[in-house]
């Protein structure tokens, strides 16, 4: 069995059947959930998502900026195209929609060239969807620098010069997170952050008004759009997490009794 599988599977790194099985199981669960919720859209109640205060506060932050007549800034993080960046762009689409509706300026500083066209088209489409294509300002999507602290100092300048009323930090941030958050705090901006870097989370919790905890970023687009299929996928993700917790518990109990059966199974190839 092992010899047969090793011909097909890559065994040169951590990509062993244990890991592959997990990933394909998730894929399977996700695809099944899509089909399930598509098929039963009208007959079954939608899974309930618990309230996420940070996401509820987005409208409040935009409302505050509108009342003050000052702009909102949105950062998509310090990684190029990644799952975290795509999740941030989904939130940015919602923010762009709301700011376009209320004629509030949205400034998007960019660190990576490849995200610029995506941000431009997302914000332009939001303006078209609310029926105000003429209010779209391409100059507000600003590529600053690919250098980490060149980008950071550019952001500091924007926050101070434009006196932003709301600052949103979504995506994957590294050591610039605290500088950006504290500069926003000094400018008196309402701050909402959602990022996936565990090391930076304490800084953002300390500095921002609202912080999404890790995976809550990936729930944001389903939460904001109320899209039935996306919510179904979140439910599938939670169900799989329960299975993983079960595997971990069994592994803990087994290893307490001196057995390595679970770890052996997970690394089998």
């Amino acid at each position: 069995m092992s010899a047969m599988l090793s011909g097909w599977l890559k065994t040169d790194s951590a990509s062993r059947l244990g890991l592959a099985t997990i990933i394909f199981f998730i894929s399977y669960a996700v695809v099944v959930s899509i089909q399930y919720y598509r098929a039963t859209a009208t007959t079954l109640p939608m899974p309930k998502l618990r309230r996420v205060a940070g996401l509820d506060a987005i409208d409040e932050a935009i409302g505050r900026a509108t009342e003050m007549g000052r702009p909102v800034t949105f950062n998509t993080g310090a990684s190029a195209i990644s799952a975290a960046t795509l999740a941030a762009i989904a939130v940015m689409g919602y923010v762009a929609h709301q700011t376009a509706k209320f004629d509030t300026r949205l400034i998007v500083p960019m660190r990576f060239h490849e995200v610029v066209p995506i941000a431009l088209s997302t914000i332009q489409m939001a303006h078209i969807e609310v029926g105000k294509p003429e209010t779209f300002r391409p100059d507000d999507v600003r590529y600053l620098s690919s250098d980490q602290f060149g980008f950071t100092s550019g952001c500091i300048g924007i926050i101070q010069r434009e006196r932003v009323a709301a600052q949103m930090l979504f995506g994957n941030f590294v050591s610039e997170a605290l500088i950006l958050a504290e500069e926003g705090s000094i400018a008196g901006a309402m701050q909402i952050a959602g990022q996936v870097n565990v090391a930076q989370t304490p800084f953002l919790i300390a500095a921002c008004d609202y912080t999404l905890l890790q995976e809550e970023l990936y729930v944001a687009s389903a939460y904001l759009s109320k899209n039935r299929i996306r919510i179904g996928m979140i439910a599938a993700q939670d169900a799989f997490k329960l299975i993983l917790v079960g595997i971990i518990m069994v592994g803990i109990i087994a290893s307490a009794f001196g057995s390595s059966i679970v770890s052996d199974l997970l690394t089998l190839y």
Binding site: I26, V31, A84, A87, T122, A126, V196, Q214, L217, R230
Partner: peptide
């Protein structure tokens, strides 16, 4: 898990905000 779920949503086209709207 969240990252995998997000990637899968993008892969199968459930999440298409990156295409603009």
């Amino acid at each position: 898990l969240g990252s995998l779920s997000q990637s899968m949503r993008n892969l199968v086209g459930v999440e298409r905000s990156y295409l603009g709207g």
